[in-house]
C-alpha cells in the first residue's frame, strides 16, 4: 500500500509541474493573440493616445515577464484578477458596469463552471453506464447483427457534427414530440427537476458524441482477453457467457476502459462550446468564446487554466484507478 501511496504522490506532483508548464504556454499563447483589449474596446475610432492611456491604466504596458508573475502570484492565491471589461469601467467611473461592487474573474466564471460541470455530470451519468453496458453486450454477442448495428449507430453518431445531432434531437424531441425544451436557459435557484429537464437535450447530444469511443474500447478490451487461459478456464467451469465476461474478463479489462472514460469526461467539460451555443446553455464554453472575442485576457487565461486542470486531474484519476484496478499492486506479495 505504501508503494501505491508513493505512486499517487508522484503523479500528483507531476500533475502540478504539468499545470505550471501549461500556465506558461497559456500565457504566451494568449499574449500572442493579434490585437489587444484596448484596440478591441475602442473600435475604429481609436486614437493612439487613447489606446496608450487604456493600456497604461490596465497594466498592459508592462513587460510580459512581470505580467506573468503578477498573474501567477494572483492565481496561486486564488485571485484570477478582474475582467478587463470590468476593470475599465471601475477605473473610469469609480464603479462597475452594473453599478455595484467590482466583479472578479472568479465571480464571473464560477456560476458558468458550475453549469458546465452539471451538464457534464448529467451526460456522464447517462453515457458511461450506457457505453460500458453496450460494450459488454457487443463483446458478448460479437459479430452478431446486434454488434454490427450498434457499431454502425455509434460510429455514425460520433461522425456527425454535434450541431447536426443537436438539431436532429431538437426536431424529434422538442418540435415534433415536445418532450424536452429546446432552450436550456437555466439560472441559479432553479429547482433540480426543472434544471435537469432543461439540461436533457444538450446532455443527450453529448452522450451521442462520447458513447462510441467508450463502448468500442470496452468491447475491444474485453475481446482482447477472451483468448486468455483464465477465460477458457471460466468457460470450462460451465459458467454462463454473461458471467464469464462480466466476472472474469471485465475486471481485468478495466485499465484501458478507465483511461478512455477519463478522456471523454474531460471532453465533456472542455469541448462543449458548440452544444452550449445551440441550446443557449450558460456554460463556461460560451463565456470563453465571448472573452476571446473582446480580448479579455484574464478571463481567457482563467478558462484555459481550468480546462488544463480538468484534463490533468481526470487523467491523474484515471491513472490511479487503473493502478488500483490491478490486484498485483493492491495486494503485494
Amino acid at each position: 500500500m505504501a508503494g501505491l501511496l508513493r505512486i499517487i504522490v508522484q503523479r500528483l506532483l507531476l500533475g502540478i509541474v504539468t499545470l505550471f508548464v501549461v500556465s506558461v504556454i497559456i500565457f504566451v499563447a494568449v499574449n500572442a493573440l493579434p490585437g489587444d483589449f484596448a484596440e478591441a474596446i475602442l473600435g475604429q475610432g481609436a486614437t493612439p493616445e487613447a489606446v496608450t492611456a487604456i493600456r497604461e491604466q490596465l497594466g498592459l504596458n508592462q513587460n510580459a515577464f512581470t505580467r506573468y508573475f503578477v498573474w501567477l502570484g494572483g492565481v496561486l492565491r486564488g485571485d484570477f484578477g478582474v475582467p478587463l471589461s470590468q476593470a475599465l469601467f471601475a477605473g473610469n467611473f469609480g464603479t462597475t458596469a452594473t453599478g455595484t461592487e467590482v466583479i472578479t474573474v472568479v465571480d464571473q466564471i464560477m456560476p458558468r463552471l458550475r453549469n458546465t460541470l452539471f451538464l457534464a455530470g448529467v451526460s456522464a451519468a447517462i453515457a458511461v453506464p450506457l457505453a460500458v453496458t453496450l460494450g459488454i453486450l457487443t463483446a458478448l454477442y460479437r459479430n452478431s447483427a446486434f454488434d454490427r448495428s450498434m457499431n454502425v449507430t455509434t460510429l455514425s453518431a460520433i461522425s456527425s457534427p454535434e450541431f447536426f445531432i443537436a438539431y436532429v434531437l431538437i426536431l424529434f424531441l422538442a418540435v415534433l414530440n415536445p418532450v424536452f425544451p429546446s432552450l436550456s436557459n437555466i439560472f441559479p435557484g432553479m429547482e433540480f427537476s426543472e434544471r435537469l429537464n432543461r439540461t436533457m437535450l444538450p446532455a443527450l447530444t453529448l452522450t451521442l458524441a462520447v458513447t462510441a469511443q467508450m463502448m468500442r474500447m470496452t468491447r475491444a478490451a474485453i475481446i482482447n482477453l477472451l483468448a486468455s487461459p483464465y477465460i477458457e478456464m471460466a468457460r470450462l467451469k460451465g459458467l454462463s457467457p454473461m458471467r464469464v465476461i462480466v466476472k472474469h474478463a471485465l475486471p481485468n479489462a478495466l485499465a484501458p476502459i478507465i483511461t478512455v472514460i477519463a478522456l471523454n469526461l474531460a471532453f465533456l467539460v472542455t469541448g462543449v462550446v458548440v452544444v452550449e451555443v445551440v441550446f443557449v446553455y450558460p456554460g463556461i464554453g460560451q463565456l470563453f468564446v465571448d472573452s476571446v472575442k473582446i480580448r479579455d485576457i484574464p478571463v481567457v487565461q482563467a478558462c484555459c487554466l481550468i480546462f488544463a486542470a480538468v484534463y490533468i486531474l481526470l487523467n491523474l484519476t484515471a491513472d490511479i484507478l487503473s493502478i488500483v484496478s490491478n490486484p498485483r499492486l493492491r495486494h503485494p506479495k
Partner: peptide
C-alpha cells in the same frame, strides 16, 4: 490446465 498461473483469474 497446464499453467495454473495463467489459468487462475488474476482479479
Amino acid at each position: 490446465a497446464q499453467s495454473a498461473a495463467a489459468s487462475f483469474n488474476p482479479a
